[in-house]
Design a protein around this nucleic acid. Sequence first.
DNA 1: GCCGTTTTGTTCAACTTTCAAGGAGAGTTC
DNA 2: GAACTCTCCTTGAAAGTTGAACAAAACGGC
Lengths: 172, 172
Amino acid sequence: MTTYPGDRPGPPEPRWLSDDEQRTWQAYLHATTLLEDHLDRQLQRDAGMPHVYYGLLVQLSEAPEKRLRMTELAEGAKITRSRLSHAVARLEKNGWVRREECPSDKRGQLAVLTEEGEAMLTRSAPGHVAAVRQALFDRLTPEQTESLGAIMAIVAEGLQPSGSGADLPWRR
Amino acid sequence: MTTYPGDRPGPPEPRWLSDDEQRTWQAYLHATTLLEDHLDRQLQRDAGMPHVYYGLLVQLSEAPEKRLRMTELAEGAKITRSRLSHAVARLEKNGWVRREECPSDKRGQLAVLTEEGEAMLTRSAPGHVAAVRQALFDRLTPEQTESLGAIMAIVAEGLQPSGSGADLPWRR
DNA sequence: GCCGTTTTGTTCAACTTTCAAGGAGAGTTC
DNA sequence: GAACTCTCCTTGAAAGTTGAACAAAACGGC
């Protein structure tokens, strides 16, 4: 039985989390699962769909012509194309989204927000914003909001499928 | 057509998110979905289970006697009892958890971490910690870590099924 | 043009999560 | 101790997600 650290290649000593980090991680997990859950229920109740689906509609509503290529939509929502296919199929069945062929690329599909979809969004947006506000922003100081934004931007940046070149040896 | 705000009951003017808040919210959504996804894949690959399930094993491993009542486990993980039932069934099938009757309450069940479960945990913990570290803590300053912890604690507190008395008129 | 590669979006099967319903024991009241 | 109510946990079906496999179109030499 040899003792780490420091001799030979062998498995590197894992650097555990400090107490502070553990507490932060725990709080992070609790907060994120509770919040996602909360919003899922809120939207399922008031809009008849889960939070992710709602996000798709929002994204479409902000897009030029209220339409986006499937891949763009998936990337914007940070979900897989497969998941999006199912989601759009469901939203289509609800009449909130319609598919159109992409004129420039015959492989492509455009997801288009319908009138009904827009109406549904207008109807449920206030309640949803209120829920987000009540769970998050109303409880934070402006400094905390600012800080949270910065932190989350860093984390997202680091996990981006493309932009994560920092510590990946095979990328330049 | 009357104009809000301020006359009569009517639907209250929704208070929209400021630009800062919108950016923060967007970053939050991106970061949390990317991170959860990332960890899910990491654990699915290295431990053969999703992140939530892994969390259950961790919780058991830290409990006295390496066992917990189903309800306690569910509360600790912030998931429903139903979800836990299914999860434990699956983990049991893998041999990582075993169920035992609760001596003091015949309705109760204890989830117990098995030897194999503990072994699996020991085997996969280093990789998982590394993943968390790489995605989160290695990118934050100590002040940011501290700040994130505080913020998440506030949010979790506010959504706690029980402790959320702050703005609920029907409590007290 | 032709061939190999890449991109796009869908589909299938396996798995996970949700929601409503329900059985069984514990607690409470009279 | 009977009748109510509540808590504990499970179940089954429906909804959602995942990962691998796939067809079709686009791209990139050569």
